[in-house]
């Protein structure tokens, strides 16, 4: 074993100009962010935005092309051994051994992190309770139902009581009730002092995080608390419009070009503008002319999804891209 090495800083994560290029493609483009200890940090963005690449760099699986970062105060390139001992990781894919039993999986991962003997037995019992797997210890992992596998994977990731937990899309494909239970558990962990880094593309989950960063095309386009991001990046208020023919309405409203943003949310349209209420008569008139069949129109609090779309647009305008 190597001796304790001094930590470079007190942040859970500090990234400076962190960049990863694959040939000509820049997956992560000079990003900056810091994570305080004990917080739940949400890393948001569409698929292919650079979320997984960033996680892989922080975990020491990929070498950054430029820039640097520390995890728990240790350099991700030169001190990754120190980092690995202290973190837990749950990847997008299910990474337990399907041909081992529940108990064998916990044993294997526990011992890999140096947890053994009485301590291992105690923590195993706790994890099995937490995952609701009591009585299934000797069952092969491949025979478990999806939600159970999910909880077992989390259990193995935190069995060694890591200082920090990395979760890459942990709730993809999990039902809403299990998702809620999962987040409740994450809160408990955070309260006990574990720092949690979580990527997701569920915007409703992002509301649960203490701090957020939006990543798009490899760049961080907004960061802060959910509230501060909304205040800073929302250009105006949001009007939610329900009508019979959303496609017709969308085209008509976009043509008006009075609005910051017109976007489709399922069958509803979200329209963003400063002083949006003043436009209501104009909107009503337009939709009637085009025969879109307006049902209702309400002023709503912006969701993070609105903010995200708004900030992507802001970013594109800055760079002169197409909206």
């Amino acid at each position: 074993m190597t001796g304790e090495k001094p930590r470079l800083n007190d942040y859970a994560v500090q990234a400076v100009e962190l960049t990863k290029k694959f040939d000509n493609f820049t997956a992560v483009d000079h990003i900056h962010f810091t994570i305080e200890r004990g917080e739940i940090f949400g890393f948001l963005g569409p698929n292919g935005a650079g979320k997984t690449t960033t996680i892989r760099m922080l975990l020491g699986l990929l070498r950054p092309t430029e820039g640097e970062a520390t995890v728990l105060g240790y350099d991700i390139v030169t001190q990754s051994e120190e980092i690995k001992k202290r973190i837990g990781y749950m990847s997008q894919r299910f990474t337990l051994y399907q041909d081992l039993t529940v108990s064998e999986n916990l044993d294997f991962y526990g011992r890999t992190y140096g947890v053994r003997g009485k301590e291992l037995a105690q923590r195993k019992e706790f994890m099995i309770d937490m995952a609701g797997l009591k009585g299934h210890e000797k069952e092969l992992t491949k025979n478990l139902a999806g939600g159970w596998k999910q909880r077992l994977a989390l259990g193995t990731a935190i069995l060694h009581e890591p200082e920090m937990l990395f979760l890459d899309e942990p709730t993809a494909g999990v039902d809403p009730i299990s998702r809620q239970a999962f987040w409740n558990f994450l809160y408990r962990l955070a309260e006990e002092g574990t720092t949690i880094f979580v990527t997701t593309h569920y915007m409703d989950e992002a509301e649960h995080c203490h701090n957020l960063a939006f990543i798009h095309n490899g760049r961080i386009i907004a960061q802060g608390t959910p509230q501060s991001i909304k205040e800073k990046h929302m250009k105006g208020e949001v009007l939610e419009i329900d009508c019979q023919r959303a496609d017709v309405a969308l085209a008509a409203l976009r043509e008006l070009s009075h609005f910051e943003e017109v976007a489709l949310y399922g069958s509803l349209i979200h329209l963003v503008a400063q002083g949006v209420e003043g436009y209501e008569p104009l909107i009503e008139e337009t939709l009637r002319q085009k025969g879109a069949g307006l049902r209702s129109m309400d002023l709503i609090a912006p969701s993070l999804e609105d903010v995200f779309i708004s900030s992507i647009k802001e970013q594109s305008n800055l760079r002169g891209d197409l909206p």
Partner: peptide, 9 residues
């Protein structure tokens, strides 16, 4: 599972 092993000690 290899990735899981590579982020372990």
């Amino acid at each position: 599972t290899l990735e899981q092993l590579l982020v372990s000690p």
